[in-house]
């Protein structure tokens, strides 16, 4: 293999005139994080709402929730990305569609990418929220109801605080997924971390250095997330319940 290794490439100027290659990579990382965090906010919000309505006694609400989850869960992320970018502006009212298409770069691609990743992940979050609520005993909801709490209050104060605690570990995995899945946004021209690495490779022909950097950065970011999730798990553990540092065993039996 005739490959000219050059680990100092990161400190060389990129021909796009914005600074060093390292700078290019970090700008890409910035877009990756912005994309992942904004999409995560949407995913959590929609996921909790949809997960909750799938457990309510109202049958028609449950059906709407089920349809939502199956729609976003069963179409490849890449296809959804194209649908949001190419098809969605054509389907909405013309004025809105034109406004979307005229958004200056990078927003014209970034906004559809956020919406796509957010809704895609929300279906998965909804599935976990539903499973978390259903894992609680039926008596918990009854106890809240019997005290006079309304259905929304029972969810807010009784069911969701426990259900969300239970699903923190799988939610952590979803957050790791959203960071990794954000790379798909490069297909609609969002210059996130993977796209930046590819740009570096194309300008400098240093393919190994470019993707080594991307790999290490993804790995470090995700390790930080893993550590943060562990901290959160410890912080919200319920004393007396089984789990990481859930406190001493129950008294009695």
């Amino acid at each position: 293999m005739h490959y000219h290794w050059n680990w100092r490439i990161y400190w060389q100027q990129s021909p796009d005139g914005s600074g060093t290659y390292l700078h290019t990579l970090f700008v890409g990382l910035g877009w990756t994080l912005a994309l992942a965090l904004l999409a995560w906010a949407i995913a959590l919000l929609l996921g909790i709402v949809v997960g909750v309505i799938r457990t309510t006694p109202l049958r028609w609400l449950e059906r709407i929730g089920n349809a939502y989850v199956e729609l976003f869960r069963n179409i490849p992320l890449l296809v959804q990305m194209f649908l949001w970018y190419f098809v969605m502006p054509e389907l909405v009212p013309t004025a809105l569609g034109d406004w979307i298409k005229q958004m200056p770069p990078p927003w014209g691609a970034f906004v559809p990418a956020v919406l796509c990743l957010g809704t895609f992940t929300s279906a998965r979050v909804a599935e976990q929220v539903r499973a978390g609520i259903n894992s609680l005993s039926r008596g918990q909801g009854m106890a809240g109801t019997a005290l006079g709490l309304t259905l929304p209050q029972t969810y807010r104060y009784v069911l969701l605080p426990m259900a969300l605690r239970i699903i923190v570990p799988p939610l952590g995995s979803e957050f790791l997924n959203i960071i990794k899945n954000s790379a798909v946004a490069l297909t609609i021209n969002v210059v996130e971390l993977t796209a930046s690495a590819r740009a570096m490779q194309e300008y400098s022909f240093q393919v190994f250095e470019a993707f080594t950097a991307a790999t290490v950065i993804y790995l470090l970011v995700n390790l930080v997330v893993v550590l943060l999730m562990r901290l959160i798990e410890r912080k919200i553990a319920v004393p007396g319940l089984i789990g990481p540092s859930g406190g001493p065993a129950p008294a009695g039996h």
Binding site: G240, L241, G246, G247, P248, P250, A251, G252, H253
Partner: peptide, 9 residues
């Protein structure tokens, strides 16, 4: 205390 740290009774 939390309920998990109490006996059943």
């Amino acid at each position: 205390k939390h309920p998990g740290n109490l006996s059943g009774g």
